[in-house]
Design a protein around this nucleic acid. Structure first.
Length: 280
DNA sequence: AGACCCCTGGAC
DNA sequence: GTCCAGGGGTCT
């Protein structure tokens, strides 16, 4: 389930494989994958000039196509989306949703977007698509680019639980279930604490740990639970550093108390009842 | 704020 | 066969 560190890793590993290559053809195998007002074939003729990330969105930046006003493609991998570059003769598999055929200094290659669960989405970057895309328009700031003051201000005086705010893409972009639970454990904050009951000092601690865990995860090329791979096909290794995610009923690595599992905002939440006391 | 939906592979 | 994983949209 690609979150910020996984998408960042994909962007970094994909970039050298696609930059300066031209999209010469596109194929759509599952039409619902493409959202918005512009068809995927509007990318044809454009050269990929960069690969970036915004929150959990992977961004392929292309040369501006004046006729279609297209400047790239946004991909949301959701849970099972994968991006790979294959040789010209590679055949689509049953999970292949999109293929961009690339031509350039690296020869003819194919950029595959595979997605078993069909939750992933692609959207062309055009003025109309961006204007009418509420998710894009309301997406919160990047956690690795915001200040501690920006972060804490978004959590104070809110009654929602601190975990649901961490997962809210309008509050902070790019955090999913893994890094929400891991940063709350490190900060020793119970995930069900209402945000207005978390002290300013605790919020600063949470922000510092959130940045730490994201940077460590990026350095480890992300967390591979099941589906996630880099754009080179490698697994990440940060799953080996989890303190709580996926460890319900196992002993806390700090105090050996049995880790508890609950549901917050519809998501499985694992925490240590001793290290993360409830404060209310 | 919570429920349901979208989807399918894997665990049991 | 049943249940679960879960990001984001939508509806109540």
């Amino acid at each position: 389930m690609p979150e910020l560190p996984e998408v960042e890793t994909i962007a970094r590993t994909l970039s050298p494989q696609v930059v300066k290559q031209t999209v010469v053809a596109t194929r759509v195998f599952y039409p619902a994958t493409v959202e918005g007002f512009a068809p995927l074939h509007n990318l044809e003729g454009a050269e990929i000039v960069g690969v970036g990330r915004r929150g959990k969105l992977l961004l392929l930046q292309t040369t501006h196509q004046r006729k279609t006003e297209c400047t790239g493609l946004a991909l949301h991998l959701r849970m099972t989306g994968r991006v790979f570059v294959y040789p010209q003769n590679a055949e689509p598999n049953p999970h292949t949703r999109l293929i961009l055929t690339l031509q350039g200094s690296l020869g003819c290659r194919q950029l595959f977007f595979d997605d078993a669960r069909k939750f992933g989405r692609a959207r062309l970057l055009t003025p109309q698509n961006l204007t009418h895309w509420n998710f894009w328009q309301t997406l919160g700031p990047e956690p690795l680019e915001m200040t501690a003051e920006m972060f804490t201000k978004r959590f104070t005086e809110r009654r929602r639980t601190v975990k649901s705010l961490l997962l809210d893409q309008q509050i902070v972009a790019g955090i999913g279930n893994i890094y929400a639970d891991e940063s709350l454990f490190r900060a020793r904050i119970h995930p069900a604490t209402q945000a207005h009951h978390v002290s300013l000092k605790q919020l600063h601690t949470l922000f510092a740990h959130l940045q730490d865990v994201l940077l460590e995860a990026i350095a480890a090329c992300g967390s591979s639970i099941k589906d996630y791979r880099t754009a080179r096909g490698d697994a990440g290794s940060f799953q080996n550093a989890f303190n709580v995610y996926g460890r319900a009923q196992q002993p806390c690595l700090i105090c050996h108390t049995t880790l508890q599992s609950t549901r917050i905002g519809g998501r499985t939440t694992v925490f240590c009842p001793r290290c993360q006391p409830i404060t209310d």
